[in-house]
Computed example of a mutant assay.
Amino acid sequence: MDECFNATLLPQITKLQPRENNNWDEFLLPIIFAYNTVVHATTDYSPFQLQFRHEPCLSTDEPSTSFLFNKPQDYYEQMKKNLSIIQRQARDYIINREQQYKNNYDKQRQDPHYEINDLLLLRIFSRSMLDKFVPFHLRDTHNPPPYLDHSQQQS
C-alpha cells in the first residue's frame, strides 16, 4: 500500500513544486487531502469516507440546515449503521478487486508440474552476485530440496 501511495504522492509534489525552491513540504497537506478525498478503485470509497463515515465538508460547501433526530443517541446509532454498511461494501469491493488481480496475474503465469526424477536447475546464491545454476533430479514433488545433497554436489 505504501508503494501505491508513494507512486501517487511523488508525481503530485513534482508537479506543484518549483524546480529552484525546496519547499515541497508546503504542498504536502493539500496533496494528502486530495488523495484522501478521491474515490479509490479498490474500495469504491475515499479513505476519508471510510475513516469518518461521511464525505468531507469543505469551507465552500453549504452547511446543512436541518437534522431530523429525535434523541441525541439516534445520531450515533445512524453513524454506526452507516459505518458498518460502508465497511462491508468496501470489504466486498476489495475481495472482488483481489480476485481480478489474481486472474490477470494467473493469465501470465505458467503452471509447471514436476515428476520425480525430472531434471531441474537449482539456483545457488553467491556473494559475488554471480549465482550458479546446477542441474539436479527431483526426488520429492511435495518437498523440493533447498540445497543439493552430497552426491549431487559431487556430480
Rank of each mutant, 00 (worst) to 15 (best):
Q51I: 09
L119T: 07
K102Q: 15
I124Q: 06
Y45V: 01
N103G: 08
E98A: 11
D140A: 04
L138Q: 02
F67D: 11
D2S: 12
L28Q: 04
F27G: 04
L148W: 01
Y101S: 14
I31C: 01
D140W: 00
Q49F: 05
N6D: 11
E77W: 00
K15G: 10
P72Y: 01
Y93N: 15
T8N: 15
D106K: 09
E20K: 14
D118I: 01
R97Q: 15
A41D: 15
L130M: 08
E20T: 14
E26N: 09
D2N: 13
C57H: 09
N143C: 09
A34H: 12
P18N: 07
S126T: 10
H113P: 03
H142I: 09
P47G: 02
I116K: 05
Q78E: 15
P30I: 06
I94V: 13
K15Y: 10
T37D: 04
L119H: 01
M1D: 14
H150S: 09
D61V: 02
D140H: 03
S128Q: 07
N21C: 11
H54D: 13
L68M: 09
P11Q: 05
Q108L: 12
R123C: 05
D92W: 06
Q99G: 11
W24Y: 04
P63G: 03
R123I: 05
N70Y: 03
